[in-house]
Simulated scan of single mutants.
Amino acid sequence: MSLIHADNLPPQPWTDIFTDDTCVDRRKCHRTVPMKVLALGVGRTGTASLRQALQRLGYLNTYHMMRASVENPPDCLMWHDALLAKYDGIGQFGRKEWDQLLGDCQAVSDWPACAFAKELIEAYPNAKVILTTREVDSWHASVMKTVYWRVTDPEHRLVSHFSWAASMYYPMLNKFFETFFRGDFPNKGKQVYQDHVAEVRSLVPPERLLEYKISDGWGPLCEFLGEEVPDAPFPQGNEVANFYKRCRTRNRRQMMNAALHAVTMGSAFLAAGATVAFILRRLR
């Protein structure tokens, strides 16, 4: 499977009718709203719930991995380029590129954004920073059951060879785990988590940083952001059982997209062959 770069975005097959993916080329985008919040905690610390909470507070298009994995897969190409620039020294990824990728977002959360804490803080020095945390053993067990399972899922790997969307998401997700988690999440993940928390603390003055547990609810979050507490329960999302179901459903629908594409390509090939044979007969 060859690596696709963001400057060579493949067109979305018209046969991708079983999924609701969009095909926005972020390389053609720019910043349209100010970046206000950088939520730089690693995934599985409540980042999906935080995304919903921030959007409920009016922070437009709060970014989350799901935006790349199931909403606009071409985003994965730019994230992959960002990972290559940071960890392999290939290409450049600075404020211009961040504004292209995140230009319609007032907040960002989850991974892969957390891998770029320093870069995002430098790019958006006026944004407030939230560091979601969780007891490290509980966090590690949760990732092993969810996102690390997704990284190592042979069915996901298989689908990536045929699916337009998975061919962009699967390589990026693997690249993220290889780099951010030093190639060995099961054994090094806990140390990376602790190092990441320490790094974020070192990058931000206390008045710009909120260390936050999702169980704390609306109060500390709204006080930090200067927002009124909504008259609604704090959102809860991305449970383990739902994660499995969503991923399996995604695989199946991408397989259906690929199967339909194969059938139509086969039909087109047969039709082309019949047309050529007809023309050759007429020329005799």
Rank of each mutant, 00 (worst) to 15 (best):
G89H: 08
H161F: 13
R248T: 13
L225M: 12
W14T: 15
N174E: 10
F181V: 04
D99Y: 00
L203C: 11
Q194F: 00
A141D: 09
S167P: 00
Q236P: 01
K128D: 08
A39M: 06
P220H: 05
H261W: 05
S167Q: 07
E228K: 04
R250M: 14
A141E: 07
V33M: 15
S163I: 11
V229Y: 00
N8I: 05
F234Q: 08
L60I: 11
Q191K: 06
G94I: 00
K28I: 06
S202D: 11
A6W: 02
P205Y: 14
D25E: 14
A165F: 05
C114N: 06
P233N: 00
D231V: 01
F180V: 08
C76M: 10
V200L: 05
A166C: 06
L280N: 00
H30S: 12
M65Q: 14
P205D: 13
Q254W: 00
A6Q: 10
R252D: 10
V108Q: 04
D88R: 12
L120P: 04
R281G: 00
A141K: 02
F18A: 15
E239K: 11
S109M: 02
R27E: 13
L60D: 12
T152F: 02
E119T: 03
K128V: 01
L84F: 02
D16S: 15
L101K: 03
C105I: 08
Y193K: 05
M78G: 12
Q12N: 11
M65I: 09
L270D: 09
P34S: 14
Q52G: 09
A85P: 03
P10H: 15
V151Q: 02
H161L: 13
C76E: 10
V42I: 09
N242W: 03
K145G: 03
P73S: 14
D216L: 01
W14L: 13
R182M: 11
P73F: 06
W14P: 07
R95L: 10
P171F: 01
F162E: 02
A107V: 07
D25L: 10
R134I: 07
Q12Y: 10
V70L: 12
Y193A: 01
R252K: 12
D25H: 11
G189K: 01
E71R: 09
M168T: 04
I121F: 11
M172F: 12
F176T: 04
L221W: 02
L210Q: 11
I90Y: 14
S163P: 01
N251L: 14
E227S: 04
M66I: 15
A271Y: 10
A241F: 05
S109N: 09
T179K: 08
